[in-house]
Design a protein around this nucleic acid. Structure first.
Length: 609
DNA sequence: GTAATATCAGAGTA
DNA sequence: CTACTCTGATATTA
């Protein structure tokens, strides 16, 4: 049953969700609902591999400014329940229907026969803008777009988690979108032709609402975004952005060409199909052909990592070069538009396609110095590449993904287990592990971390559930094709072939040297002589990875596993970086903690770390 | 088991 | 207010 409170975000949650930039606590990079009062989440101090950082300097920038978020007075209100009358679009006006596949009418998940509508959410008097005003600590468009994007994702994952506990609608994407829109937490809300500030080619998305909130493509479902624009003295309606979701199937290997089908013709409410008309988006596309204006293109593909999902990739600017009419298989006239990618732009969808090929067949990845840096320690080989200079590889070290404990594992406190049959399920009050994590399972069904916590407790040996249980994520190890690569000015770095969704597990900090007890500050990762891929992760003041303590094989919170997760969506081949923490944090031990000049090059760069 | 195809509730914009 | 749409989640069937 629906409860209004499901939809009212905890203001603290949103407040923190909306704090991805360096505002109060730069060491909390994750906009994922960290409890601000927690004292147990230290910055991560890392002893970097030798020679990783060359001398240089990073320019410190003072970042201040506001996002284009203005306070809202109230969210929409709505009635509790409404009975829908006789507007059932499937009840009449039907041509003869042959038996068909798919679910029969009225077989929705709530068995409501399509008549009883689920009440719409209420966001009553929720003043988000005030809390969110400090969301942006930067006026850089990229920072704003990333802040908005991350806020959306944080809200979506948290709402998905809450909705699973209740048996509510699972459209967490729409809920997150509604909150963002109602609070005016969005970027680039005005329409424009051409590039959108802060949005870069290759940026990836998983929901249409994401495109909407960052101002890349306004329609929540429609494929053609258009506006009226002045050309000299006359106005014209021109297309500004299209989403090519593959729905009209144009087999293309040539990523610089896109044949886009016009809209219309297959009405959703009737069986009848009719010719497409030269109106709305189609007209705008036609006028764009005439005006030769640039059109943004977002390409959608089936996401190989999510059976039902799609991945959207911003592929930059195109221009329409010709249009024609074509009879489709179902016999209607359809408009076709041939778009060519404007030259001189970096790869977007093409890069994704290339890395997908590598994933299918790693041998197709050329220029490899070493096929598996891990020497089979990892399930998936870690390739070593250098496309920059003549260095043959990092200084010698022993690859290990084993964690060293100060005491033998057997002597540690046991982690309490659950008695769940088969797998743990959300909303199961009898699941001890769910309770241990504060009442919710920490990961989504896709294995994405829902919300950052002081500690995550995965199911372990003493649990009754199977290894398929969704509360076993990091213990299964990394599932990415990592690549240790030569950077231009930061020694070796780490990246991977897959696009990585925000909240995805990346890898463990294999050899961090903890003190006798887990001290809030600082954790030290020693990567000198041993380690796994994490030792190649460089520092950035605008990181895309954060770390999170996780337990699964013992119950001693003094010695947690340190696990890395994606802070934001990370396009393939993007360097993975995390915030090493604030320089000058008290350091003990080998004395190797020296301030280093930061080479991250981000707008928020502190200059040192 | 899985791929295809159906339903259905949607949100933003014109 | 309504129509429109290259959604996204889920159920059912081939």
């Amino acid at each position: 049953m629906y409860r209004a409170s499901n939809f009212i975000p905890d203001p603290n949650q949103v407040l923190l969700d909306a704090k991805p930039l360096r505002s109060l606590a730069p060491m909390f990079p994750a906009p994922m609902g960290v409890n601000v009062n927690q004292s147990s989440t230290p910055p991560l101090v890392c002893v970097t591999p030798v020679g990783q950082f060359s001398a240089g300097f990073g320019a410190g920038t003072s970042a201040n400014g506001a996002i284009d978020a203005t306070p809202i007075s109230a969210y929409k209100t709505r009635s509790n329940i409404s009975l829908d009358g006789d507007d059932d679009p499937y009840s009449g006006n039907q041509t003869e229907r042959k038996p068909r596949r798919g679910r029969p009418p009225g077989s929705g998940r709530d068995g409501s026969n399509g008549k009883l509508k689920r009440p719409k959410p209420t966001y009553k008097n929720f003043v988000a803008g005030k809390e969110l005003a400090f969301l942006a600590a930067s006026s850089d468009p990229r920072d704003i777009v990333e802040a908005v994007h991350m806020t959306f994702e944080a809200l979506r994952r948290r709402h998905l988690q809450m909705d699973e506990t209740q048996d509510a609608s699972r459209r967490a994407d729409l809920k997150a979108g509604a909150i963002m829109m109602a609070s005016n937490i969005r970027a680039n809300s005005g329409k424009r032709v051409g590039t959108v500030p802060g949005v870069e080619i290759g940026d990836i998305f998983y929901f249409r609402m994401e495109l909407c909130v960052i101002g890349l493509h306004a329609p929540s479902m429609g494929g053609i975004d258009y506006m009226t624009s002045k050309f000299g003295n006359d106005e014209d309606s021109v297309a500004i952005c299209i989403v090519s979701a593959g729905g009209y199937e144009n087999d293309d290997d040539d990523t610089d060409v896109l044949v886009y089908s016009g809209q219309g013709g297959n009405s959703r409410n009737t069986e009848e199909r009719q010719d497409q008309k030269l109106e709305r988006g189609n007209l705008a596309l036609e006028r764009s052909l005439h005006r030769k204006n640039e059109i943004r293109v977002v390409r959608g593909f089936k996401d190989p990592f999510c059976l039902t999902g799609k991945i959207y990739i911003y592929d930059g600017l195109y221009k329409i070069h010709e249009s024609w009419k074509e009879k489709t298989r179902s016999g209607i006239n359809c408009f076709k538009y041939k778009l060519l990618r404007e030259p001189g732009q970096r790869d977007g969808a093409a890069l994704w396609k290339m890395t997908q090929k590598w994933i299918d067949d790693p041998a197709t990845r050329g220029r490899v110095l070493l096929a598996d840096l891990s020497s089979k320690a990892e399930t998936i080989p870690v390739s070593l590449v250098n496309e920059v200079d003549h260095e043959k590889g990092p200084a010698h070290f022993t690859y290990t993904n084993q964690v060293k404990y100060v005491r033998p594992l057997s002597s540690m406190k046991k982690l309490q287990g659950c008695g769940c049959q088969s797998v743990c399920l959300p909303g199961d009050a009898s699941c001890a592990c769910g309770q241990h994590n504060g009442g919710d399972l920490p990961y989504s069904s896709l294995g994405l971390l829902s919300c950052r916590k002081p500690m995550i407790y995965e199911c372990g040996e003493s649990c009754n559930c199977s290894t398929n249980c969704r509360n076993r994520v990091t213990q299964k190890g990394p599932r990415l094709h990592f690549e240790v690569f030569r950077t231009t000015n930061r020694g070796w770095g780490l990246r991977c072939w897959e696009p990585v969704r925000a909240g995805s597990f990346i890898c463990e900090a294999s050899t961090y040297v903890s003190a006798d007890e887990f001290e809030p500050l600082p954790i030290k990762i020693s990567a000198k002589n041993m380690g796994n891929v994490s030792r190649f992760m460089n520092h950035s003041c605008s990181p895309n990875v954060f770390w999170q303590p996780v337990q699964y094989d013992h119950g001693d919170d003094g010695h947690p596993h340190i696990m890395f997760f994606a802070l934001k969506h990370i396009p393939p081949m993007t360097e993975l970086t995390y915030d090493y923490g604030v320089a000058g944090a008290e350091s003990s031990g080998s004395g190797s903690r020296r301030t280093k000049n930061c080479m991250c090059g981000s707008q928020n760069c502190r200059g040192l770390f």
